[in-house]
Design a protein around this nucleic acid. Structure first.
Lengths: 212, 212
DNA sequence: ACAAAGTCTTGACGACTGTCAAAAGGCTGG
DNA sequence: CCAGCCTTTTGACAGTCGTCAAGACTTTGT
């Protein structure tokens, strides 16, 4: 569906080029919103703050999005299209278990460092979804995407190492995610060491998830 | 330090029985606040809402706590004294690896079911602490406590099984916590199956964390 | 070039927030 | 039993929030 907007639909009979323009505006808004959300977190981010940190006014936000949840929800869906295919290239090009492990861990620490804010926001939103029903659907959708991503890596790893996964897909995801979340939470306190610690720990765990 | 209050200190020359009374009031407020926080989450909980769901008025809250963060922070510290010793009895009384595993998993699923709201709040607060400095210290303190708790269980388990831990303490905690958080997040969607799934998964993982 | 549709700005609204101060009530020591 | 401190209530404040409407501006079809 590619980030379709069942949203505010501001223009009813949009011209052929207009619908693209609207979509572009929405994406621009979303990207700006994501920047602010990543810095302040869900709770402390207001629509006015989002508008302030962008080239738009707060009225525009409500013109392109029905309400706050609609915007956030759109942001989340937009974000997901970017995040879950992060390791796909590594999975496809790796020709040995070590290739895969090194590539995977490299990408992982890279995104931890370069997109810390976005990961913070993700864990924030997942927590918020426990209290706000309207976020639930989008959050679980992303969770499934991430789970599948980890599963692709693990099964490929098993292939290369000549074994098979010793745990099911949700378990594998929960374990890796636990390590990653720990790294995201602790990153602010020690940006130097945390990435390497994470890499080492995941590397240590990976083989344990494979059975001969 | 046992939930000491470097807080509002409302009464300066409190009578000997007065200081207890103040502390009791604080605890009552905190317990009521935790109930509301557990239901609504950190962001959506206001001081007035906390007061409404209690026998006190909103003025009293500010009489016993300097501000909102002071209250939340006190709640968190109060909560931690209850949560981290949950498995201690099991660890001490278990005489076989199976004893320990069964007891541990039992308590774990029990607290998942009976104190879901409190666990939701915990993951919410940990996420918030990434954005709100004032929560950071208390949150990491609890995290360390929980880590030590898991470590006690794992080392005891290793003893009983005649091996030694194959991962370090932070890793073990991150893995188990990942599984538990997954269960907490998913509990609302399927309260029937999630506890058993969690138990099964942890049981599957435990032996993998031990080296001969 | 004109009218219509789309886009954007601005200002306002009601509701809610954390915080505080003034005053009333209650308890205890003398 | 009264004075004085502790506790609580109540009402108000300044600020922020999401939302919306009225109008101005811009683009487009004809």
């Amino acid at each position: 569906m590619s980030v379709t907007a069942d949203a505010a639909e501001p223009t009813r009979s949009a011209r052929v080029s207009g619908i693209d323009k609207v979509e572009r505006r929405r994406i621009a808004l979303a990207e700006s919103a994501l920047k602010t959300l990543g810095e302040l977190g869900y709770a402390r981010t207001s629509l006015r703050e989002i508008a302030n940190n962008s080239e738009f006014t707060h009225g525009v936000v409500h013109y392109y999005f029905r309400d706050k949840i609609d915007l956030i929800s759109y942001c989340v869906r937009y974000y997901k299209t970017k995040c879950a295919q992060r390791y796909d290239e590594v999975v496809e090009t790796a020709e040995s278990a070590d290739d895969l492990a090194v590539g995977f861990l490299g990408k992982m620490t890279q995104t931890l460092v370069e997109e810390t804010a976005m990961h913070r926001l993700w864990y924030d939103l997942r927590a918020q979804s426990m209290f706000e029903e309207q976020l639930r659907a989008d959050v679980t959708a992303i969770d499934e995407l991430l789970e599948q991503m980890i599963w692709r890596i693990l099964t490929r790893y098993a292939d290369l190492v000549g074994g098979s996964p010793a745990v099911d897909s949700p378990t594998a995801y929960a374990l890796v995610d636990g390590l990653f979340e720990q790294a995201v939470v602790g990153y602010a306190a020690d940006p130097e060491k945390v990435p390497d610690l994470l890499a080492g720990r995941v590397r240590q765990i990976l083989p344990k998830l494979i059975a001969a």
